[in-house]
Amino acid sequence: MTDFTLDDLKRVMRECAGEDESVDLNGDILDAPFEDLGYDSLALLETATRIERERGLSVPEEMLIEAKTPRMLLDIVNSPAHGEPTVSEER
């Protein structure tokens, strides 16, 4: 299975919570805190649930709480624990 990419994450984020007009998801968001992107914990939970369904994996809630940026979430989703290589650089 291929890595879940930043573009994949942006698509899911838009589907789950839309896009705040003041936030440009096309910009450099990899290390931007989710709250700065207009995504609260509920929106992030919905995003994670959708990723889990698409990827057929289960991410422990404790790990989701620790994911403060898109890079951190991608690292979790693509981690070896889920059978995927770890994200180490911007995609």
Rank of each mutant, 00 (worst) to 15 (best):
P60C: 04
I51T: 10
A48Y: 00
L42I: 15
T2L: 14
M1H: 06
D20P: 05
T47L: 04
G27I: 08
D31P: 01
T69N: 08
A67M: 12
T49K: 10
G83R: 10
L45K: 11
A17F: 01
E46D: 13
E21V: 14
V12A: 07
I65T: 11
G18M: 06
L37F: 12
G83E: 02
L25K: 12
L45N: 07
M63H: 03
L45R: 11
S88R: 15
A67C: 14
S58I: 07
R53T: 09
S41V: 12
L44C: 14
E52R: 15
R11T: 15
P33L: 15
D75N: 07
A67T: 10
M1L: 11
I51F: 09
E15N: 07
K68A: 08
V23P: 08
T86Q: 03
L42W: 00
V12E: 06
M13Y: 05
M13S: 04
E89S: 15
G56H: 06
G38V: 14
M13A: 07
T47K: 03
I65M: 12
D20H: 13
G56A: 12
L57A: 11
L45C: 10
L9W: 01
A43D: 10
L30K: 02
M63E: 05
A67V: 04
R71Y: 00
H82M: 09
L44R: 15
F34A: 09
L9S: 01
M72G: 00
K10R: 15
E19L: 13
N26W: 02
R71C: 00
I29V: 13
V23H: 09
I29S: 11
G83C: 12
A48N: 06
P33H: 04
M63C: 04
G27R: 05
T86Y: 00
R55W: 08
T49F: 11
V87R: 01
L6K: 07
H82I: 03
R91Q: 07
S22C: 01
G83T: 04
L57Y: 05
D3Y: 09
E21A: 15
D20I: 04
A81I: 06
R71L: 00
D75C: 12
E15P: 03
L45P: 01
T2P: 15
E54V: 07
S22Y: 05
T2E: 14
M1S: 15
E66L: 05
D24R: 14
A43S: 15
E21T: 12
M1W: 04
E19F: 02
D8N: 14
V77E: 00
A67P: 04
V23E: 07
K10C: 08
A67Y: 06
V87E: 01
A48W: 05
V59E: 08
K10M: 12
L57E: 06
R14N: 02
D36A: 15
I29A: 05
A43M: 13
T49L: 13
K68D: 03
S79P: 05
R53N: 11
L74V: 09
R14P: 00
A17Y: 02
M72H: 03
C16H: 00
T86A: 07
P80R: 13
R50I: 13
E35K: 09
A17N: 04
I51L: 10
V23Q: 12
I29F: 08
G83Y: 03
P33T: 02
G83W: 04
D3V: 09
P85W: 00
L6S: 06
H82S: 04
